[in-house]
Design a protein around this nucleic acid. Structure first.
Lengths: 204, 204, 204, 204
DNA sequence: GATGAATGAGATTTCATTCAT
DNA sequence: TATGAATGAAATCTCATTCAT
């Protein structure tokens, strides 16, 4: 039983990496099997087909990594601190699971047609969460009135591009010094600077 | 002569759309040929192979659409106005050529290994441009000191995600009202709000 | 296990025939698959690609058929008998595997650029073998001094052309009676006549 | 008019080289056109198609180079000298037009199905010619009785393999010294040695 | 349950030939 | 007459999936 779960996890981990690297269309079942150290037919036996495997990958990523952000925020009341936590905890999730930004990019690039409803709900929850924070801040006279979607679009895409642009920035010598060799982790300096900048912009 | 250029453009346009929709791995030469209204072999006759076609698409997009931003800015001296123009002209380029954000996402998702040096230089130029604007604003006592990469990451990814997330947001009913049915154009209300927010955050 | 070897052999046999009939450029993977009674993809699964398949054919032909000539000669000491065996055993190998002369011709016609080193060694071994026989005969006062390459060039090409010219000679009515309807086997009358003629020419 | 003939000759020469190098199936109309310095469509306009072009190449080679051997022999009466001339003039023809052995090999390898009747007659004529020489020699008590096909097979294939094996012998280091770096011309030392050896074998 | 082998459908690419000027 | 451009047919090769054990 445990062994079976192990094998399933191996497959899922391998699939996550390969899908993150190559996207759905570019991923090869061969690569996944090899990386997982199992026979290709084993994947079909255990999971079904490429599409189902991809869905499982999406679920494991979004279900496990991003969903617990909300919980952490319950204990905090200050909108400023909540916003800070919102940004840093997303940054940390991304650092913890570097497949997230890649998969999100693949999904966005492809129009997100394979995004399961359950994951859409996850993301929708994040938006609502942020909207509540901003609303509370406004009501407490801390923040000015702002379109939550603008803030959302300035936080999450920035964190993700920071990560996915890393190989591009490092590879090409054309990039200026400030763009090259940035820290790999987005949850450190970069996320903190972002927190400060956004709070500044929100300040009444 | 002109007719040949026409056919090349047809191919390039069709390829741009298909690559934007499906990415490199997912794009089918068949689709591109059909969309361009030419025989598949005509593509091979004119371009060579899939890889070269993709490169040409990248070049046409980045070379034509994004590169002329810089010129527009020459006549303006105020850093505030320059920053405003920076954001709005990128937003307009994206609206004009909706393939841009998709292709950028595909490239980022895949690690950008097929990004030609020429295009890297284009992007590098944009970063340097923004850095100069921010530096000038700082020296004139208008802006506070800020990491230009942070600002860069809060502008361009936001504009692009705004566009690419559109089908995802509209498709899933889970998304809250504020996320659904946003205007298609990013260069209107959204870009203006962004300009205001960023200037606010930069203000000394 | 055995069955896999069987299928490999089927593929190899079919490929040998098709390559012998049509050469590398003219051979069609379709034909080979059909002749072998397997799916085309099976060839790619087992072998890799056309080039590798061709190499394997070359190796099987030269490694299996021609290489054992040398062994047979060990037990014989007389240079005359050795030379006789040299000629007749090559003739027999050619009769046994009629693909040999065709493939040799294709290779010679194309400049032999795809001939693997291993096979070149095989052929080189045959030349050295003949040179030793002639040298021994000379030292024993039986043969006159002769350029071994001349003898080599008068034996092997003759045996091979005998076989490959058969369809040409039989097809065209222009050919004189002595050229038409020669026995199919080269290892019978023809090889014996050759043995006699060459020994005559070598006799001191 | 002359210019047209020039262009036709260019095409024919280029085609001869390419067919000699790559065979019928391996030859590419593109290569031929490029080598001839004309547009591909020009070949089709002037000649028709690949098959007709190949036929013209065969005709030019066999009609021009090999056919005049016979004439040269008329003035000579001695069978010994005639045989010598037979061998050396074929060797010279081969040296003069190095495409001959390659094309002959391609034809033999493929079963010679595209060999036009006219060329078969040419070859048949050579066989009859040799048979007459041997017969005369026998009747004059100079040669022993011999199968003319045996002699034919020991002359022409040897001369041709000498040429076509050259790149193979030189490329592979496995070949013994005596096989490497033989003179390029077959009409010198090698043809003379052959003449001597064959006359020796024929001597009564 | 697990896997090496096999494959059908379809992808990219090639090439002799034709078209339009 | 000549040619740059275009193409239909067919070639090689790939890949998600299934089969047989």
């Amino acid at each position: 039983m445990d062994q079976k779960q192990d094998k399933l996890n191996q497959i899922l981990e391998a699939a996550t990496i390969v899908f993150a690297e190559s996207g759905y269309a570019g991923a090869r079942m061969d690569m996944i099997a090899e990386r997982a150290g199992v026979n290709k037919a084993t994947i079909y036996y255990n999971i079904g087909n490429k599409e189902k495997l991809y869905e499982k990958v999406l679920q494991s990523i979004f279900g496990n990594e991003l969903s617990n952000t909300e919980e952490k925020m319950r204990s905090i009341s200050s909108p400023v601190e909540k916003l800070e936590l919102y940004i840093t905890s997303i940054a940390e999730a991304i650092d913890r699971n570097p497949a997230i930004p890649n998969i999100v990019m693949w999904e966005h690039a492809s129009g997100g047609m394979s995004l399961p409803e359950i994951i859409a709900q996850e993301i929708a929850g994040m938006i609502e969460n942020l909207a509540l924070i901003l609303d509370a801040g406004e009501k407490q006279g801390l923040f000015k009135k702002i379109n939550p979607m603008l803030v959302q679009f300035m936080i999450i895409p920035a964190l993700m591009f920071y990560k996915t642009s890393s190989p591009i920035r490092d590879k090409h010598h054309a990039f200026p010094e400030i763009a090259r060799n940035l820290p790999l982790a987005v949850s450190g300096k970069f996320a903190n600077e972002m927190v400060r900048f956004i709070l500044e912009g929100l300040k009444k």
